[in-house]
Amino acid sequence: MTPSLVVLTDFFAVTNRALSYAAGLAVPLDAQLVLLHVRYDGMPVPAGYGGQHTPRGERKTDRALLKLAAEQTVPTEVNVAEGFLPEALTEAVRRHHPLFMVLGRPSDATESAELFTSVVMDLLRHAPHPLLVVPPVGWDAFPPRRFLLAVDGEPFAFADQDHQEVVRRLLSATESTLDVVHVTDDTRARPADGVVLATVRANDLVNGFAESRLHEVYSPTIVGGVLEEAARQEADVLVLVARPHSLLGSLFHRSVTARLIQESPVPVLILPAGE
């Protein structure tokens, strides 16, 4: 079966940029694209694109989607769904078995950023599947060459074995490297030697992960430390592991994950962890 990437589209320019990024990744991954459009689900949509649920508006949406699919450089199909976004994504995962979903982050206006982050966290809770969030501006490197995985030092395992393969396939397809950052802040002590490295090696994300690629840093805040190390490493993609239930102070606590999604200047790949 040809692998696929499911791209959520609402016709905003930011989404189109995310679509271009997804299409670029689809080439080395030898994957096809699926444009997923969910009829108005409480999120803002451009005027005239079916927001009022009129037959004329919905026909215009369908024509625009087909045109958008035809313009892509890789095989692309259209999936128009009704109802709520989490349910639509769950069905898209069941039907298309994507490597990951792709979602474009809107501008940094506070209201839209908070709404977007709330949607992403809701999706991770109800439709746990790898999700790539592409920021509107600020990143230029393509294809990505440097991936940076942020870990909290606690053992983790992915919710699905296939999720582990996402990183391996991306690294192989783009001939990229993987580094790991662990941040110690004012509330968290540094783990014993070897503990963080063991949590990474236990998941076999790469063959023979080298100790030199683990970066232990101190920062007053977890978010600040991760983003500073990402800048120092000139990372092209930030990778996060989203735990379904995490303790306050964990790197993957909901508020920390949300801020990294909002503030990262480079795409963020979120991988759901198991219980």
Rank of each mutant, 00 (worst) to 15 (best):
A26Q: 09
M43E: 12
M43V: 08
E91K: 04
V38Y: 09
P44K: 02
Y40I: 00
A13V: 11
M43T: 14
S107I: 00
P135I: 02
G50M: 12
L123P: 08
E87H: 08
V134T: 05
S112E: 13
H53N: 05
Y21R: 10
L65T: 13
R125M: 06
A23Q: 14
K60S: 12
L89C: 09
E58N: 00
L123M: 15
L131A: 01
T54K: 02
G83W: 00
S112D: 10
R17N: 12
A113G: 04
F116K: 11
Q72W: 05
T73G: 06
V78F: 02
H53S: 06
M43D: 09
A26M: 10
V74W: 00
L99P: 00
D62W: 03
M101Y: 10
E82A: 03
N79M: 03
H129K: 00
P130E: 04
V78A: 02
G42M: 15
P75S: 04
H37L: 08
G42C: 15
K60T: 13
L36E: 05
L131S: 01
E114S: 10
R39L: 05
T117M: 07
L131T: 07
L19A: 07
A31T: 12
S20E: 13
A92C: 06
A88M: 03
A47F: 15
H37G: 07
N79G: 00
A69H: 03
T110M: 03
F116S: 11
T117K: 08
E82T: 04
E58F: 00
L68G: 06
P86V: 07
K60A: 14
R63T: 14
L19H: 08
S112C: 01
K60W: 11
M43W: 14
G48V: 12
L123A: 12
K67W: 08
Q52F: 07
Q32N: 08
T54G: 06
A26W: 07
A127W: 08
G51A: 11
R63F: 13
A47Q: 15
V14N: 10
G83S: 04
A88T: 04
V102M: 05
F84L: 10
S107R: 01
Q32M: 07
M101K: 07
A69Y: 03
L132S: 09
P28N: 11
K67S: 13
E77H: 02
A70I: 04
H96Q: 05
